[in-house]
Design a protein around this nucleic acid. Structure first.
Lengths: 204, 204
DNA sequence: GTCTATATGCGGATAGAC
DNA sequence: GTCTATCCGCATATAGAC
């Protein structure tokens, strides 16, 4: 148990540092200093830096998704469930900087192996759920594309939050969780409604 | 002139390397080797690594936006212009990996100073244009939020392209330029139409 | 303008004492 | 389980010859 504390401290410091500065900008010495141990000690707990990175990812991603499914189940209609999903997703992305920044870092720099891990262990469940919700709401020919749009839209808004205030008409409130949740939902509903009538852009 | 060639070679190699691996993963040696000169030579052309990074950004971002305005002007109706804009934007993002990856890197890691530069020197013009187009198309109370959605949606799709094939229902074609252009356009039009009737989510 | 040579420090990683 | 001490290579950066 006593060692578990140290290992967890390492993982917490490491993931924080990796998320904010990037893997290669963070040295083992940096991590060790933050934790308050010597660099050599890190090598007792983790084989090398790559192992520390992997463990940090796993540590942050694990169980981040548990609140989701129960929350969805509490709602009856497909539309309500969709709303619950979007609300959960926007909140998760915007209120877990650590989590979100690590995801964005992997999407930008991750090698294929780590990306595949990310896809299956983190994204797959919520993505499949969203897929089904969309399929239930409007009979689109290709729900996966719409699901990707929802995910991409939220991630995009998160990333643009830092520049939006510098742009004409951009206001900080545009990046609030509530605002974006509402906005994504109305766009999504409009798209689904529109798609129901015609299935415009989905011809494969 | 003779030195300009070397300096430009350096900038080209450097921006390519920075975009693909990140600033801190790329050493001055890496750049020098790629160019075919010695590391010391880089310091003749650029004060230090930070200066090389800045110059690389400026080099890639400069004049990337010139084709835009003329292309828009060739179309008459607001809706056609919007379509031209989206087509241009998606193509620019998806077909200029160098450009796009550097933008994403700045959004993730850039300090406030570099972000402000990015916003004013790269984003401002097209963003303002999109803003106006949206305002012309549907009388939304807050076009900037919708403009941010378009930008975020496209960036999001670009980033998700690497994981989408690993997800249920995800197919590589979902990330094609044509597909995403069409999809963004139909979503946007549905949202604008919907917004015209009610202005649902935009109450400040 | 470009090179060789080099200063100086930081990087990951290990051996072995406690 | 954590430390001290250390190896060794690579990093940024400079001095000075050509």
């Amino acid at each position: 148990m006593s060692n578990k504390t140290t290992q967890e401290s390492i993982l917490e410091s490491a993931s924080r540092l990796f998320a904010s500065k990037g893997y290669s900008s963070v040295s083992m010495r940096d991590v060790a200093t933050t934790v308050g141990v010597t660099p050599a000690n890190l090598y007792y707990h983790f084989k090398d830096k790559e192992a520390l990175i992997r463990s940090s990812l796993a540590h942050v991603f694990a169980e981040r998704l548990s609140p989701l499914e129960e929350q969805i189940r509490r709602h009856a209609t497909p539309d309500q469930r969709l709303e619950a999903f979007v609300a959960w997703f926007v909140r998760t992305i915007f209120e877990n900087e650590l989590f979100t920044r690590l995801i964005l870092r992997e999407l930008l720099d991750g090698n294929d192996e780590r990306l595949a891990y990310l896809a299956t262990s983190v994204f797959q469940k919520p993505f499949a759920l969203l897929n089904n919700l969309i399929a239930d709401c409007g009979r689109r020919p290709d729900p996966a594309l719409t699901a990707a749009s929802v995910a991409g839209l939220v991630l995009g808004h998160y990333q643009l939050a830092r520049v939006l205030p510098h742009l004409p008409g951009g206001r900080p409130e545009h990046s609030s969780v509530e605002r974006i949740t509402r906005h994504v939902l109305t766009s999504l509903r409009a798209t689904l409604k529109d798609g129901n009538r015609r299935g415009k852009d989905e011809t494969v």
